[in-house]
Design a protein around this nucleic acid. Sequence first.
DNA 1: CGAACATATGAATAGTTGCTCATGTGTTCA
DNA 2: TGAACACATGAGCAACTATTCATATGTTCG
Lengths: 124, 124
Amino acid sequence: MKKKADVIERCDCVMIHEDTIDRVRKNMPPEETLYDLAELFKVFGDSTRVRILWALDESEMCVCDIAALLNTTQSAVSHQLRYLKQAKLVKNRREGKTVYYSLADEHVKQIFDQGLDHILEDGK
Amino acid sequence: MKKKADVIERCDCVMIHEDTIDRVRKNMPPEETLYDLAELFKVFGDSTRVRILWALDESEMCVCDIAALLNTTQSAVSHQLRYLKQAKLVKNRREGKTVYYSLADEHVKQIFDQGLDHILEDGK
DNA sequence: CGAACATATGAATAGTTGCTCATGTGTTCA
DNA sequence: TGAACACATGAGCAACTATTCATATGTTCG
């Protein structure tokens, strides 16, 4: 059947459940949305960034404070803060020589809590 | 002061807010927990895996179906499914030659929804 | 058993990423 | 103005990752 060949371009199997595929496809968000979603979670997928975000959820902090807290370098923290700012998850304000960072999104803690649920639940 | 030198090993700045750092440190979860949390989000940080998980939230599917739906190869899907299974996010059952995968965790959709909130909110 | 099919997996590769190191920018203060 | 400090940033590198390709495993059926 020609239709099948059109739909399945890269799968080397014979399609088994075409109705399922069509139904699922209809209910899926646009591919771009899922791509953006993955990009967001990529931000949370690094322990340095997770620790920074968790710290900022506790208190506004300057770059030097964060570096000391995480026992890493100022440069590494600064690079990650730039990343986090691009993702609109943190904001900053300057006060003299010091730049204070804080959370820019109230979802962060909620997302963390959902993730913790998973981790703690099955004792992984 | 000697104490400062002990605390700040890798930060090349003079510590400014020692009280803030101490307070935040007390309220932070153990480092291992935050590491595990980052590992979990790393799973969600890839659009192929996000699409697989979203699809499985709609319906149980076999490997071939998923590959056709995502327009990718059976091998790529199979590799990612292994990853997802290790993360305890999917489970599978065999029925003859076919292996059906489904979600193993009801948190997945909730975590996705939280993430979507962030994306849609500020029109990123 | 052997062919056909669905899936799994190991090795190789191209692309990505997080850190370090060196240096640049912006601010304060003497 | 220039030294000192906090922070930002570009280049380079080592480590990781997602896919592809080839092949192996497991199942059904004639």
